[in-house]
Design a binder for these strands. Structure first.
Length: 733
DNA sequence: GCAATTTACTTTTTT
DNA sequence: AGTAAATTGC
């Protein structure tokens, strides 16, 4: 049913943002100010003026945001909405790349490598280059390469300098990495943004085509775009400069991923005639919630000054609850949630638990199961990142892209088929000599002399098995083929026979994956297996979360961006956790504060903040201090509370043990800590010897027992953080 | 080459 | 505390 496009529903600023369709426009939209409404109305308005939907390019941050927006626009303008180019930067440009990949030396069936796969490529390079992983972990290098790419730093403009700050070998690693990806016909996430730039540079004609087509460009969550995305936008904007960016610098929480708030602030430098519209009326939250959020965010120095206000009711004060530890915290939250649900005040889906790190979800999960509260965890170990799912996907990727060495390596001997490390190395050498991918080099191996027949046979079986299905995957009816393929793989049988809880789960996950393939085929009858693989490589977990599943939502503060809930709990408001401290330092306090701000402004009616006095990390309990953000809150809008357990802890520390022991027997461990390690004579300044790194000097000592840590500066000049328990240090002096 | 056992490492946040 | 990686024994 179509709803009417009624501009009178909008306030004057919103209306202006909707109807200003010519020229560059920047909408600085505060939290809850109707940003999504403006974007949907704006697009619907464009279409109602007779503008072709296919000339509109709308870029969002998550696929979920895109599909929701499309749905809402469909309600306003009907089926025409289907022709809008709407999606995330990554998915839109992945699609364009599929069509034009041949221009830059890829095929349309290129693989997309996620962070893990990129890391594996780097691991392989380090091994071949004989570089120890001790100096730089593959993850660190992956991060640097990603940063270089999304900041558009290439060889021509200072890549050498960028890497030299760390290590001279990095440039060589970087080049080898790109070579290997290209040889594998694969792109990483950042390539999906910089390869289009390459494409448009190679083919002026192609660029003109898309510039002409996308006469109206809209960008959501503009504060979280990076340099590469910005550059792409500038390339695509045509002489009409119809570009509309919507964002809020106070909600920029992806700087660590290369997002440049500068893109907002300098927008009107690149587009001098930019019109700026501010949306400052909040329609979401109560006055109390807004006041709390505002009192915290105003401690940030770097921000565009703005006043967010609301005509909503004052509402109840925000509660701040002290808990004893993370289990007590989870119990407390579960109790409140139960009463909210049982009194029919709120439905489960209207309640969210937000935390800084995924690891925090576990305690809540346990308690929610016990209390029979329906819940759903967004993120954590994501479905598509699970081993069994990735295994199947690796098979499928290899089917469509036989050059994909990463996928090949993942599954060549899983399930086991007698192809071990030695056989793989033999094949790798042949592949290299013949300049082929590993899969494509199997026939060469079979032709080679001096290789055992047994090994040749194992490879031959594998090669024939894959080849049999390779010819079939371009079929539009790929689901049936994939199903037959998996039957022949016999992997479901394998998990079924194992009969453990874990294998049952894996079995279920593969079934679920098959269902998702079937669903995709039904919804996209014209698509191929490649399209399916492309789509799932780019989905975030938030995208998958269906809120119709009436459950309490547990997720990270990052995932909560763009969402709203009647009741919000922000848990773990402790210094070191929120803001998060890492390696002894808080990376960027202002970004952490914005994250806290994002969390607070998700709440419509009630906001609860909790923190624990003690928190377990890696098995040991540590005392905690409340978050500095709690100190920063205007106290007239909050009420402090504490759980009974925390109460006891505060008042009578001495009686604590007898009360707590029943419930938390692990607390006693502090008394029984094993002090057999060399810790007694280890102190700052000690000279120690390490099996691998040799002699060094202890410059910092922290913690005790199992968890004692040292920082040692070794002769070679490198500093290492070591766990005393594992480091096996000999004290020399 | 494979399974079982032991050891190492983890907690940012995600397209 | 829980999980992935590495090592050992067969």
């Amino acid at each position: 049913m179509e709803e009417l496009l009624d501009l009178n529903k909008l306030n004057p600023q919103q209306r202006e943002a909707v109807t200003t369709i010519e020229g560059p426009l920047l909408v600085v939209a505060g939290a809850g100010s109707g940003k999504t409404l403006v974007l949907t109305y704006r697009i619907a308005y464009l279409i109602s003026l007779g503008i072709s939907p296919s000339s509109i390019l709308a870029l969002t941050f998550t696929n979920k945001a895109a599909s929701e927006m499309k749905e809402r626009i469909r309600n306003l303008v009907g089926k025409r909405a289907d022709y809008i180019y709407m999606g995330t930067f990554h998915s839109i440009f992945a699609r364009i790349l599929r069509q034009e990949a041949h221009l830059i030396g890829y095929t349309r069936d290129y693989s997309i490598y996620d962070t893990d796969e990129s890391e594996n490529v780097i691991k392989g390079i380090l091994k071949d280059f004989n570089i120890s992983e001790n100096h730089f972990t593959p993850r660190f290098i992956q991060g640097l390469i990603s940063k270089a790419k999304n900041k558009l730093i290439f060889k021509e403009n200072g890549l050498n300098n960028f890497f030299d700050m760390y290590n001279k070998k990095l440039l060589a690693i970087y080049e080898e990495y790109n070579k290997r990806l290209k040889d594998s016909n694969a792109m990483d996430f950042d390539d999906l943004l910089i390869k289009p730039i390459e494409l448009f540079t190679v083919s002026e004609e192609l660029l003109s085509k898309y510039r002409e087509r996308f006469n109206y460009i809209l960008v959501d969550e503009y504060q979280d775009t990076n340099t590469a995305q910005y550059f792409l936008l500038k390339m695509l904007v045509n002489q009409n400069k119809n570009i509309c960016c919507v964002g809020d610098d106070a909600q920029s929480i992806y700087k660590w991923r290369g997002a440049e708030v500068r893109n907002i602030i300098e927008f009107n430098k690149d587009f001098p005639e930019t019109k700026i519209i501010r949306l400052e009326q909040n329609y979401r939250s109560t006055k109390s919630i807004l006041a709390v959020a505002d009192s915290v965010i105003k401690n940030n120095i770097y921000q565009i000054p703005k006043t967010l206000w609301t005509s909503n009711e004052q509402g109840e004060k925000v509660t701040v609850t002290t808990c004893f530890d993370e289990r007590d915290e989870a119990n407390y939250v579960a109790k409140i949630v139960s009463s909210l649900i049982n009194s029919n005040k709120y439905k489960p889906r209207e309640i969210a638990i937000l935390y800084r790190t995924n690891a925090q979800s576990r305690n809540f999960e346990e308690v929610f199961i016990k209390s029979s509260i329906p819940y759903i965890i967004v993120g954590g170990v994501e479905f598509y990142k699970r081993k069994e799912v990735k295994d199947i996907l690796a098979y499928l990727k290899l089917l469509v892209n036989p050059k994909d060495d990463e996928s090949f390596l993942r599954i060549v001997n899983f399930p086991p088929r007698g192809i071990g490390d030695v056989s793989i190395e033999t094949l790798r050498t042949i592949a290299r000599n013949n300049e082929k991918s590993m899969f494509n080099a199997i026939p060469d191996l079979i032709e080679s002399p001096n290789i055992q027949d047994r090994i040749k046979k194992n490879f031959k079986n594998f090669y024939e098995f894959i080849s049999k299905y390779r010819s079939l995957v371009n079929d539009k009816n790929f689901y049936e083929i994939v199903k037959t393929f998996i039957d022949e793989l016999n992997i479901l049988q394998l998990y079924k026979e194992e009969r453990t809880e874990e294998s049952n789960q894996r079995y279920e996950n593969i079934i679920q994956l098959l269902n998702s393939i079937q669903e995709f085929q039904v919804n996209n009858p014209e698509s191929t297996l490649t399209d399916y693989l492309s789509e799932i490589s780019l989905i975030a977990d938030v995208d998958n979360w269906e809120d119709r599943k009436n459950s309490v939502v547990l997720m990270t503060l990052h995932s909560a961006k763009g969402l709203e809930f009647k009741v919000v709990f922000i848990v773990g408001c402790e210094d070191g956790l929120l803001p998060l401290r890492r390696d002894g330092d808080i990376d960027d306090i202002e970004e952490e504060r914005r994250l806290f701000y994002v969390g607070c402004t998700r709440a419509m009616k009630h906001l609860h903040l909790t923190y624990s006095r003690n928190r377990n990390r890696f098995g040991n309990s540590y005392p905690q201090v409340p978050s500095r953000f709690i100190e920063e809150i205007d106290k007239s809008h909050i009420i402090f509370d504490s759980t009974p357990l925390a109460e006891i802890y505060l008042k009578k520390n001495s009686d604590l043990r007898s009360i707590i022991t029943d419930e938390y027997s692990q607390l006693d461990r502090h008394e029984n800590l094993d002090t057999n390690y060399i810790s007694k004579n280890l102190k700052a300044g000690s000279i120690v010897e390490h099996d691998v790194f040799g002699r060094g000097k202890v410059i910092y000592l922290d913690g005790y027992g199992d968890h004692q840590k040292v920082i040692v500066e070794f002769k070679s000049g490198i500093r290492k953080h070591l766990m005393v328990k594992y480091a096996n240090l000999k004290v020399i002096k």
